[in-house]
Amino acid sequence: MTDKQEKTILSTRDVRLWYGQKEALHGIDLDFPNKGITALIGPSGSGKTTYLRALNRMHDLEDGVTVTGSFNFNGTDIYAPTTDTVDLRKQIGMVFQQPNPFPFSIYENVIFGLRLDGVKDKAILDEAVERSLKQASVWDEVKDDLHKSALGLSGGQQQRVSIARVLAMSPDLLLLDEPTSALDPISSRNIEETLLKLREDYAMIIVTHSMSQASRISDRTAFFLSGDLIEVDQTKHIFLNPQKQETQDYVSGRFG
């Protein structure tokens, strides 16, 4: 924490995770500021996605996964038995690798979460749709087709609608699991520009396979290797002046 970052939104200590008997994360300590983008990089199987999914308890859906460690999110313990995962996931939104709008209209997709909360007021819903789609920089492209199926959009548009769907919930933290790896370069760039705009208002954690993407959009970068956190620092330090040999080797493309 060398920078002027004011507040920590999420702080994890000694995070360990087992798939059955196999330990996949070996004690991760990481803090995230309440603004800006943190990139998690590392080769396949390094545990970065596993770690990300632990942050909003997506592992609850799988059998045989054990998570230990402390997760302090705005003062609440994510894994406390009393924590309501439904509320938690409203505050910690997640965008997946595959663009995954539901087979409904764009409008219904964006307000899906609000509908779950029982919001019925048309004015509020309309406002949320416009605001979220604008934040996700896809408003201009879809504003005339709001009631058409979201599955008719291009992959990049679908992914931005998926982002808008999460933003409509006004989450405090946004988790992005390789959001551009299934997209073509132009769509990827659109998503990156969207994320750069959101950086002012949201805390985001992005898992990415692309080191150039991490260097373009993230403020801080954490390097994972084989279930260990090797190094975390400001992005420019990680890429230009890493402290660890493994990081140096990875970012210079010597393996991975």
Partner: peptide
Amino acid sequence: PRHYRESALAIGAT
């Protein structure tokens, strides 16, 4: 698709 389920839950659906 599994991702429908995951993304519904990730938005805070029960």
